[in-house]
């Protein structure tokens, strides 16, 4: 029996008077990989950022591992230790080395033993082929390398859920594959529960157990991956897919 990681009920989100998300409902089981697709401005970033409290929401409920989230700063701060997030712009801390970027939160936020975390960090760096860059600074790395480090930084927290917001959108084409392979491996090997916002349709088709299709802040589809790409349920999704030309 699968364990429910996330459930979203009747979520409404406003920017000022303007409603960005309309009555969003979906759930996510442990080990599931969901891609969140939709045209630019449809609210993908808004939704994914709401799921770890970076954006406040007006009403509706979010349940994390069966427990209702009290949307207070303190509660979110605790939950974020279990929800990893990787951004389009990597956002490594420029004043810290690669290794210190990775160690910071596990040691200072989770108060874990530095040596133990360091061993783990080095193993993760090994896995993304960047062990030799442990003592480099972010400015010395390429975009693709920075993004792989950002993923490692999130993984070092032992998250239950990973959120990816267009993590390859700023990368040169030749860097994209390396990053996507890491995410694919997280799905296949670690059975990581993930929500992925991406414009890489081939990748989405390959990795998605389910697709959430968003337009104008409304969730138009919540469809199994294969079915979405072969027979989308809505005309809007079909149009979107043909516009992506992949």
């Amino acid at each position: 029996m699968a364990e429910e990681i996330l459930k979203v009920e009747h979520l409404n989100k406003f920017y000022g008077d303007w409603q960005a998300l309309h009555d969003i409902n979906f759930d996510l089981q442990k080990g599931e990989v969901v891609t969140l697709l939709g045209p630019s401005g449809s609210g993908k970033s808004t939704l994914i950022r709401t799921l770890n409290g970076l954006e406040p929401f007006k009403d509706g409920n979010i349940y994390f591992k069966g427990e209702k989230v009290e949307p207070t700063p303190k509660e979110w701060q605790k939950l974020r230790q279990q929800i990893g997030m990787v951004f389009q712009s990597y956002d490594l801390f420029p004043n810290l080395t690669v290794l210190d970027n990775i160690l910071l939160a596990p040691t200072k936020v989770q108060k874990r033993d530095r040596e133990e975390v360091k061993k783990e960090a080095m193993a993760l760096l090994e896995r993304v082929d960047l062990a030799d860059q442990a003592n480099s600074y972010p400015r010395q790395l390429s975009g693709g390398q920075k993004q792989r480090i950002a993923i490692v930084r999130a993984l070092a927290m032992h998250p239950e859920l990973m959120l990816f917001d267009e993590v390859t959108a700023s990368l040169d084409p030749e860097m994209v594959r390396g990053v996507l392979e890491i995410i694919k491996e997280l799905a296949d090997r670690d059975h990581m529960t993930m929500i992925i916002v991406t414009h890489e349709m081939n990748f989405a088709a390959q990795i998605a157990d389910r697709v959430l299709f968003l337009e104008d802040g409304k969730l138009l589809e919540d469809t199994p991956g294969k079915q979405f790409f072969e027979h989308p349920q809505t005309a809007r999704a079909a149009e979107f897919l043909s516009s992506m030309e992949f």
Partner: peptide
Amino acid sequence: NQLDAGEALGMN
């Protein structure tokens, strides 16, 4: 973005 990154890592 830097603040978001810190917050996303669970910092208070």
